[in-house]
């Protein structure tokens, strides 16, 4: 299968320096935050890539880079063979890039903040249609909006209401209807169910899966909830301090995690079946991204770290599990793969 989305060595640095005068008077240095630092992956058409990691690991920045809300500082982002950003992008006609951009949409975490409270639902859902160059006639738009609302399980009459008249789960359905308005092939979902209650989360996840089956959508699904990612994703990438430390097909990542950070994350997930049992101790916290550790950025928390880990950044390499992992200990065979058992 061909890749719909391809990121090659994408990086994004933010300048978070103090104001110029403070720097000049206070002798403060420039501060650069490497939010994303050399991320490469592909998403085949029709598949879901899950991206997990803790706060500040850069997963939302990756989402924003792909849809063009940020420009990358380095690297190439390709969509359907069209370079959207990076060295090759300037040679691509602007029209082709616009066309590619139009076929990707985004769903955000907070359905209370991402819908304009002063607009009726029908106007919210119609907006992306109206923003297109070839604007369909008014009657066709109304018909299309009703169809979109029906597709996400809302009534046609709901179009006349305002967002505040809906619960969180219904609002997220409105967000999904809006995202589907331009008939996209690719949807970036940034924590789409994190603000929802579990029973409502189940409704939204089921809806997203049904839509994927019916419309052949490709998803980038970002979440900090490993169980949710396990449920929706075909492949999972694990991020730590701006880098992908492991990426593998979902079953093998969860059955036999290779990277020590992935193992730690999986051990930290509270499991319903573990009533009353103690779990493996998790130690340490994510370091300050302004001052990342040398070498492998996970080494201060890693029980397997040695001198090489402290000095040399590990690259993503093919692992025996069928995925890729960035870890010296795994490379050198110091860290045996975890046997897929117990779970």
């Amino acid at each position: 299968m061909s890749a719909l989305v391809r990121l090659t060595d994408v990086a994004r640095t933010f300048d978070v320096s103090a104001p110029w005068l403070d720097r000049a008077l206070g002798g403060k240095a420039r501060a650069l935050l490497r939010a994303v630092d050399g991320v490469s992956f592909e998403i085949p058409r029709g598949e879901t890539l899950g991206l997990v990691g803790e706060s500040g690991c850069g997963k939302s920045t990756v989402a924003r880079l792909i849809v063009g809300l940020h420009a990358p500082s380095r690297g190439t982002i390709e969509y359907d063979g069209v370079a959207l950003a990076g060295p090759g992008a300037d040679s691509v006609p602007a029209g082709r890039r616009r066309q590619a951009r139009r076929s990707m949409q985004m769903i955000f975490q907070d359905p209370y903040a991402s819908l304009n409270p002063r607009w009726r639902v029908s106007d919210i859902v119609a907006e992306p249609i109206l923003a297109q160059d070839a604007r369909p006639p008014g009657a066709a738009i109304g018909e299309r909006v009703r169809g979109l609302l029906a597709q996400v399980g809302l009534a046609a009459a709901d179009g006349a209401k305002y967002p505040h008249q809906f619960s969180g789960g219904q609002r997220q359905r409105i967000s999904i209807a809006r995202a589907l308005a331009t008939e996209p092939a690719f949807i970036v979902c940034d924590e789409p169910t994190s603000a929802l209650d579990v029973s409502v989360q189940a409704q939204v996840l089921n809806l997203m899966r049904d839509l994927q089956r019916r419309l052949g959508l490709t998803y980038l699904f970002i979440s900090h909830n490993l169980a949710v990612v396990h449920h929706v994703a075909d492949r999972v990438g694990v991020m730590y301090l701006g880098r992908i430390v492991e990426i593998a097909p979902t079953p093998s990542l969860f059955a036999a995690p290779a990277h020590p950070y992935t193992r730690m994350l999986l051990d930290a997930v509270p499991d319903l079946r573990m009533t009353g049992t103690a779990r493996t101790a998790v130690t340490g916290e994510v370091p300050n991204p302004l001052d990342p550790p040398s070498g492998c950025s996970f080494h201060p928390r890693c029980p397997f770290a040695d001198a090489r880990c402290r000095s040399e950044i590990p690259m993503l390499r093919d692992a025996s599990t069928g995925g890729k992992v960035a870890c010296h200990a795994v490379d050198e065979g110091r860290l045996a793969p975890r046997t897929p058992a117990v779970r």
Binding site: G169, Q170, V200, A202, Q203, A227, H230, F254, L272
Partner: peptide, 24 residues
């Protein structure tokens, strides 16, 4: 029963989560 079934779990693999329609 619905609440427990609606929680995605890492152990099991289900095609669809148990869904409680409607809202509180």
């Amino acid at each position: 029963i619905g609440l427990m079934g609606s929680i995605p779990s890492i152990g099991g693999s289900v095609e669809r989560l148990v869904q409680i329609d409607g809202a509180m």
